[in-house]
Amino acid sequence: MKLITVAGPPSSGKTSVIIKLIECMGLPKGSVGVVKFDCLNSFDNLRYKEADIPIQTGFSGKICPDHYFVSNIDDAVQWGMKLGFQMLITESAGLCNRCSPYINGIFSICVIDNLSGANTPRKIGPLLKLADVVAVTKGDIVSQAEREVFAFNIKQVNASAKVIFVNGITGQGSFILSKYLQQARDIQTLRDMKLRFTTPAAVCSYCTGETRIGESHQMGMMKKMEFKEL
């Protein structure tokens, strides 16, 4: 089974891109499954069901979404293998722009949209920096110049990535994206494979449910901000 990881900021168009991509690949119905990692709630399962795509949704809830992803991804692979999928696509939101649910050797796509501001690519971290392909959505409503500036800013942080403009509504661009997926390799398990980047550090008192504010309640891994005299 081939595994593809798709990540990107909320509402950037991940689900639309994935649905168009699956349409484009022309694999038999039901042979491409999706696992959606979300935080609290998600309505994308309805869209996948509408498109007849097998879908499984998991909510990280109070756990860091990245930690949740990495502790469940191999189970997702086993689920996909059991159902006999030819391809499994995972979808997860890079909520703090620091996440990167990418695994060494596993094909990864970052989805970001053209409306998110010209400098956004320079602010997103490993989520963008470590992706193999960057799919840019909503390019049909901004000017050619803004698309080009946006692509330039993506190249600034991820020089080796391929930048593909995908229209999540008409599917324009998803064909060439699907061609890239042919490079994805077959796997049976992810055991002992490695994430491309560490997940956000955690385990402070707030991770374990502390709600009170103040130095005496802060324990564990903390990072304090430096306030300079102006």
């Binding site: 049909d140 409503i141 901004v142 000017s143 050619q144």
Partner: peptide, 11 residues
Amino acid sequence: AQLSQNMNFVM
């Protein structure tokens, strides 16, 4: 390069 009626400047 594409140019269409419903394109806007957003910056």
